[in-house]
């Protein structure tokens, strides 16, 4: 993340893609198109991770988000598509107050963070994947195991919630 014109240009292009995609995600009426623009946002964020020299996170982002979560969301949208065309209610509510609130929040956050003084460049070498893996099997082994437990709990809970109620299978 040096301030070379190349990295600045890449960051600017990816940031534009992320912001345009994010705007589409929250404003498009068609939920399927909103999910596809979420894919654009996720890929843009993965590209920004690459600009920030976090290669492992960029690939995890593509693998987990674009590969798994987005597929899951598209599946859910297709499974509920019939209900979505039936509904008569508008797709959004309270657009103007929400725009005022979130615009004010954005302005506040941006002014506060831009007024601080940030270091002009990175403090040291980029974090390598090897160092990350080493941390996971030495110092962070407990959080790592806890997150696996959370995964198991989420899977079992999701199956229990989504499974059809009725007579137990033999």
């Amino acid at each position: 993340m040096t301030d070379t014109p190349g990295s600045l240009l890449a960051a600017g292009l990816l940031a534009t893609a992320v912001l345009v995609g994010g705007l589409w995600v929250v404003t498009l009426r068609n939920l399927f198109r909103a999910a596809l623009s979420l894919g654009l946002v996720l890929l843009g964020v993965a590209g920004l991770f690459l600009v920030l020299e976090a290669e492992f996170l960029a690939f995890v982002q593509i693998l987990v988000y674009v590969g798994a979560i987005l597929t899951l969301i598209v599946f859910a949208i297709m499974l509920t598509a019939r209900l979505q065309t039936e509904t008569q209610a508008p797709a959004s509510r309270g657009t103007l107050p929400a725009a005022l609130v979130s615009g004010g929040l954005c302005g506040l956050l941006v002014t506060v963070t831009q007024r601080l003084t940030w270091p002009s460049g990175p403090a040291g070498e980029a974090v390598t994947t090897a160092a990350l893996g080493q941390q996971f099997i030495t110092r962070l082994v407990l959080p790592f195991e806890v997150i696996s437990l959370v995964f198991v709990a989420a899977i079992v809970g999701a199956i229990a919630v989504a499974a059809r109620q009725g007579r137990p299978s033999p």
Binding site: G22, G94, P97, A98, V101, C106
Partner: peptide, 14 residues
């Protein structure tokens, strides 16, 4: 900006 867009979506989506 991305965070604020998410907040806007939370407030408006039905």
């Amino acid at each position: 900006a991305l965070f604020s867009l998410g907040v806007y979506g939370m407030l408006t989506r039905r």
